[in-house]
Amino acid sequence: MQSGTPSTADRTIIIVWSWGSGGQTADGAVWPVLGSRQGSDRVVCIDEKVGACLGDRLKSTVSNYGERGDVFVFMHRRHGYHQDHINELTASFRGHKGLKCCFLFGEGGDAIYLTRDPRGLLGVSGTFSAHKSLEAAGELSLSAIADAEKQLLKPEHFNYVWSRYLFAFKERIFELKEDFFSAIGPLLSQPGCAAGEMYAFLSQPAQRLLLLRLLSFVGRLTKGSRPEEELKMLAAKEGRSLHFDDGCAQLASLYGEAVGAAYLRLCLTIKQDVLAKGNALEFKVLRDQFDVLLDAMPGATYA
């Protein structure tokens, strides 16, 4: 696993988004990063809505740049992309070099947006720049562009997004674990709970968001279903990445079989004893399974 700092291999971020509406760049444009070796760090802009399955264009673009180094793919949810497309893309490149990671993004709530994180890359609509309102100091212009004429991006923004997303799944799982154990505080006077007790607890309205995140984590949220839409809405409201629709299927291919196995073990416990009336649940067992997974994932939790 490489670190977030520049390496000798190419680094390509392919972003499928509404580039056409921004007027700053065109579908198919390539924006190299200022100062990278012969433009070996780059962002490739694709503006293409998706049908039932991925078109050949995205796959051939990944394949082309994948031969030269590592590739991240970001797919915009509003363009119709969802978990099945992540699965399809990762399956197509399983065992090949190149495709490092795929992400779904949207609603302005992810770290790739300049308005969410000033070191991000994207404006709000097809641009690499944005305006942010500051209560005390008017409006601030934010931009990831180093040279608009030559179409060059700022290295610090590219590097930040690369390192931030390289370990993004670890951050989300870590936060799920902490949020879960904080929420179940009222149950912690016992070392565990009886079969079904946890499910009853999570079914309370106050725990709705946590329940949806757990369902997403174990892959139980169907695309387009009401709970899935509800989670999207709540995540947008909170301005945080709370879905796992783009992550869990890639854990084994990204980090190896040990991580994949640790994820499956944890998933099984959550599916059987947290989200169903399976067996009695021992909190320490669940915590240990979270920790085994997190410890097996490389890198720091936060970039």
């Binding site: 000033p118 942010k132 500051l134 005390a136 100091a137 008017g138 409006e139 601030l140 212009s141």
Partner: peptide, 14 residues
């Protein structure tokens, strides 16, 4: 000054 301050203030808030 307003542009410089907006940058500083944004980073300060952050």
């Amino acid at each position: 000054l307003s542009r410089k301050w907006a940058e500083w203030q944004s980073r300060w808030d952050n």
